[in-house]
């Protein structure tokens, strides 16, 4: 079953502050991901992997094409959806583990992780309990749980971020270099978590620079260089 279907996505940035120059990024981006499958975007830096991920999540607008996500038994095009629909899809259908944690002042690591569940109506204590499980699994020392993550190291912040991204059950999950600043042990934990998501039928689209991790999690690699815009003749 196709969980995420990307059709003919195209993106060009217009840089108004630099004389209005156009920077074509990608075009004709087309691929499908089935439930339980992890697709990794491949290609060199600057090829547009991150941009594709952001278009799929709605952070970037698109100049053309569709991002079809299965939701409520229908396929909904996130690329053309109004903001409310995008928010609904993000709540119920598509999750995102970003590279960096956007910290909120004063909120403890435990609550940062529990928040996505609380927002979805889980009882606060239950949400904190599950957040604790995630953080334990990722080896974040318990003494840090009650602290706001703003002062954590890069690796600690990333683990908080991963826990927050993995705690919900979204049928589609986007992974933007979730293992970039982790040590080998924690990378292995994340690989295990991705494998578990697969077993649960989650469709994942990710960017992984670490070749070992990529080899372990990827069912398929989509080479982004194939979507490079044709230079206008």
């Amino acid at each position: 079953m196709t969980a995420l279907s990307v059709r003919n996505l195209a993106k060009t940035f217009t840089m108004h502050l630099r004389g209005g120059i156009s920077l074509p990024v990608v075009e004709n981006v087309t691929f499908d991901i089935n439930a339980g499958e992890c697709v990794v975007l491949g290609g060199p830096s600057g090829a547009g992997k991150s941009s594709i991920l952001k278009m799929v999540y709605g952070n970037y607008g698109v100049d053309g094409g569709e991002v079809l996500i299965a939701h409520d038994g229908r396929q909904v095009d996130l690329a053309s959806a109004d903001p409310r629909t995008v928010l609904t899809l993000r709540r119920d259908a598509i999750g995102y583990v970003s590279q960096f944690l956007r910290t909120v002042p004063r909120v403890s690591a435990l609550d940062v992780v529990a928040e996505p569940l609380v927002v979805r109506g889980t009882d606060k204590e239950e949400a904190q309990r599950r957040a604790g499980e995630m953080l334990s699994r990722l080896n974040l020392p318990e003494r840090l749980w009650s602290l706001p993550p703003a002062t954590f190291s890069g690796g600690e912040q990333q683990r908080v971020n991963i826990a927050r991204g993995f705690i919900t059950h979204h049928p589609v999950l986007l992974l933007d270099e979730p293992t970039a600043s982790l040590d080998a042990a924690n990378r292995a934990v994340v690989v295990g978590m991705i494998a578990q998501k697969k077993r649960e039928g989650v469709a994942m689209l990710g960017i992984f620079h670490d070749e070992d991790v990529r080899a372990e999690v990827a069912d398929r690699i989509v080479d982004v260089t194939g979507f490079a815009p044709k230079v206008a003749a």
Binding site: M15, G20, N59, G61, P83, V86
Partner: peptide, 21 residues
Amino acid sequence: AGLTDRVLDDPREPYTQLLVS
């Protein structure tokens, strides 16, 4: 106008790009 992260991550209008930058 639009989703907050869309406007801030991918500003379209010259003025919005100026604001964000």
